[in-house]
Design a protein around this nucleic acid. Structure first.
Lengths: 160, 160
DNA sequence: TATTGTTATACTCTATAACTATA
DNA sequence: TATAGTTATAGAGTATAACAATA
């Protein structure tokens, strides 16, 4: 069977919201207040990028600045993120994970991922591998959503 | 490189929200009021399942009944969906796409998919094919979210 | 009693517009 | 003028609880 970009696009439209719905429900069902998905994603970004600015977080998340500001604000209130000044450019803020934030990130990630891993293990090793590779490829396509369009072939994902 | 269910799960947590964010923005940026994602998904379901009940739609979408009720209500108000009685069981309602709903579904799908297809076409044919296969596999894992856990190996996707 | 669906209520996510402070 | 971020406001998406109608 020949599959084209159109098939892949159609499946993205169908499957991504489906899986998203699952993730959202899982995260909400954790005990302790838990993290929302944007909160969770923000923490992951800050885990990887020390001293990020709000704009950087917003761009990575594909959200507007006010939306991101509120999201981060909630995390600061919960003491999961530390917001401090950035002397080199006093318009900017500097964001980083607190020790508590790191713990919460690990805890939350572990619980939700555990359920996903169960599901993945229903699949064969080849299927799991194919999914990992495909998702890494998609990540390269969709990171930095607001950036320019690159027309070269992409060679799969790195990072981790 | 060996990839496990844990790699796949981790990538799902990272990439699915990323792509979701892209889809949401694209759908919102269409001219004419356009469809929200749950509305869009509801129409797709009704396109495939004539005379569905509200519960069936809710289960497919992985949403609670009141949430789904409101979503459908908006579609009925916009005359994209026809809600009628179901004489065999008068507690139920019968939902189906109107002619307008079908048109709107096609239009909305076409616009958003066109952007996705552009992105897919940055990739090689093999990458596109791998993504399509992986997503079809994921679909089989996540459809009917509230159903029992099946422990057999799954053989990829059918349907379309 | 159990099931199907709606209404009431509240909270989160998201956006745009208007604003402040800094460059 | 331009950029970084916040505040104000509004709308959509989601949930739980309480309810009505039917089985």
């Amino acid at each position: 069977m020949l599959r084209t970009g159109s098939d892949a696009a159609s499946l993205i439209m169908e499957v991504v919201p489906l899986v998203m719905s699952y993730i959202r429900t899982e995260m909400r069902n954790q005990r302790l207040p838990g993290l929302s998905i944007p909160q969770f994603r923000s923490l992951i970004y800050l885990y990887r990028h020390e001293d990020a600015s709000l704009s950087q977080v917003a761009e990575h998340l594909g959200l507007q600045l006010p939306t991101t500001s509120k999201t981060i604000d909630a995390l600061v209130t919960r003491k999961l993120v530390i917001r401090s000044e950035y002397p080199e450019d006093r318009r900017r803020i500097s964001l980083k994970l607190s020790a508590t934030g790191l713990e919460e990130l690990k805890r939350s990630r572990h619980i939700t991922e555990a359920r996903l891993i169960e599901k993945m293990n229903i699949l064969t090793a080849e299927q799991q591998s194919g999914i990992a590779i495909s998702l890494a490829t998609l990540r390269t396509l969709f990171v930095d959503l607001n950036k320019s369009k690159n027309n070269d072939k992409i060679t799969g994902g790195s990072d981790g």
